[in-house]
Design a protein around this nucleic acid. Structure first.
Lengths: 214, 214, 214, 214
DNA sequence: GATGAATGAGCTTTCATTCAT
DNA sequence: AATGAATGAAAGCTCATTCAT
């Protein structure tokens, strides 16, 4: 018993710890996949455990409930994505702003495309699951809009963004322009697309609009 | 219609027919409200029949299943909305294009705001309900994107839309810009907003983008 | 609908009401039997509904939960029994007190013997089911002890009960003397016994004790 | 015992044996406590092993099942108690019978009060656990009634017990009088009571009853 | 001997749907 | 046409027990 605490010679405890982590991760990954394929309400715990190849009880050894594992999954995805998006370096640098923006959008699209299940859960499966999830989702998008609005304000100060625009509404528009592209090319499709080309089109649209003479 | 043939003098059949229609419409309207308030999976048939003031069995006299009434509801909403959007008169007319666009977007926003339950179902409740619903939703948005793309092409021909843009991607962006504003100001909020101002900001954003010098 | 309220000519509503009551009573009676035979924890809802010949869901149409039906059963039994016991007429009357007491005890024993399932639930099945049930049981026996103690005090005033006895402890003893006889001859046995003889022995024991010379 | 044969010089086997016994006793004692606090069905094996500070598997190294440890516990308690009760020396001796009886009852009450967990298991927790346990309990009380009846018969022969009493029923009454007092003052309470006073009241009640003139 | 992760039968409860009245 | 009692498949979750390490 005491030995358990300081894991003596053979590292048995460490290995056990690791295997526990591995098992947890395995169930989490399986759940991610199954939820993304069938949706939350269409997925039963039986579906998850069968797909994971573990027994019913094993699931509850690692997660409190069906809702709990979904919440955990969602938190993980949102954190992952937020760090990816927020990581944008808007700081003034040498590379032309357009190219920097294209690279950023391309990076985001790439991440989402590389993790289609993840994206589908955030964009599709999580919607309307329950009040708690809805709130988290709303907050997530709100924070993204806030970030975009903040960037627009910075851009206005730097003289690269038109001063006439309504920042709040425009931030929503910009987020939406990205969201629908993701919806269209990542969520609703299974084929990969030309990330760079799409990113370029999005940036072009956001910077210059569609009007011929501005 | 058939009834018209054997309807006796006193119009009993017609009245019955009408009452049938009325009952059906009443249940449908109730379902619209309840679904929009609680979500599809959180709403039970019991909720609907209690709210409608009819017996459980009566519900199944008018609708095949919970899924069926939702599908019908969805179809109705999509038709309603599509006609509203598609009604845009892009034809060359006297009024300046910008004003015409603002009026159109304002009309759409107004419709959605006036029918929040309807909007919430289309934007929120219907997502992930089942494969069939998902397909309809996807098709609906696809048709909207198609319409926007077609309009953009017309605009290019008319010289009012930049020829360099990627029509397909830009259509998605434009749809998205509208969707997120609706999400933000109609779905996630309960307070009315300045429809005209928002419409103007959206059109401005879509025509000219955010870039300072184009 | 309106008709439902005043149950017009044919008494359909009344009959429905009655059938509902009957069904409820039937499930309650079945549960009483099954619980008394197998014990609370050994009885599953499946056992009850199979024995009652109804579907699983029907049970939950009439009762909130397994605990709820047991509580209801228990309340009913305790009320039934209490009224039976408390109904003892200690008022001074013509018939000799001993005979009156014998008649009373005999009546109690008879009731319990006639309702063995009921008795078994109160004496056996309900013990240790959950904290709530335990509390109710404790209160029930406490009230019985209180009643006996009160009667003893009255007896002392009337000069028919020794003034030296400790009323509280003696009340517990008297209750216990009855309880163990019931345990022995009603709960643990399935054969009927000579109610009058036993009642007489109990009363004799309680009045005169076992000592040869008092 | 067997171990004694091949135990090497250093007594390793003996010590191992002893540690086995100690471990077993420790788990048993823990189970006694936990069962008495929460009840049989409310106590999970997890509760027991956590309280005992051993692993789940270890429990099954020493006991066959949850039922088995409870049975063992019960047997131990019953043996303990029976020896205590049966130890009554009814043999004719110098001390006055009443004082002897009071001392005996006081000793029993004292033992039960000193071992509330034990008492609660015998009087409360064990009831209705399963058919096997019920049978053991019934047998236990039966043997107590038998002993009391035997003592009463001896008393009749010695002329200190009334000859008119029904020995069997009276034995039940006497046992019951003791049981309910224990229920009331030991099981349902946590505060100590005046053992001697209570014992005296019980004996007085059993010897002389409550009647004023016998 | 000790461990604790894994198991899976079995539990209570829900709810869309049916059907006798 | 309208009713609402009845149905039963299927869900989420628990826990005594096993067994590889």
């Amino acid at each position: 018993m005491k030995a358990a605490m300081d894991d003596p010679v053979d590292g048995r405890v460490r290995r056990a710890q690791e295997s526990r982590e591995a098992r947890r991760a395995q169930i989490l990954a399986t759940a991610l996949r199954v939820f993304s394929e069938k949706g939350f309400h269409q997925t039963s715990i039986t579906d998850v455990v069968k797909a994971a190849g573990v027994a019913r009880g094993t699931f509850y050894l690692y997660f409190d409930s069906k809702a709990a594992i979904f919440h955990e999954l969602l938190d993980e995805l949102m954190t992952h994505l937020r760090s990816n998006v927020m990581g944008v370096d808007m700081a003034p640098g040498a590379p032309p702003m357009v190219e920097q923006l294209v690279a950023t959008v391309a990076r985001i699209l790439d991440t989402l495309q590389e993790n289609r299940p993840l994206t589908r859960i955030l964009f599709h499966v999580a919607v309307g699951v329950d009040a708690d999830v809805d709130e988290r989702l709303t907050g997530f998008y709100e924070s993204l809009r806030g970030f975009i609005g903040y960037s627009l304000t910075l851009g206005q100060a730097a003289g690269v963004v038109r001063s006439e625009i309504d920042v709040e509404i425009t931030a929503s528009c910009a987020l939406g322009s990205l969201k629908d592209v993701v919806q269209r090319y990542v969520v609703e499709s299974d084929t990969d697309f030309d990330v760079d080309g799409v990113a370029r089109a999005i940036v072009d649209y956001n910077l210059a609009g569609v009007g011929a003479q501005s």
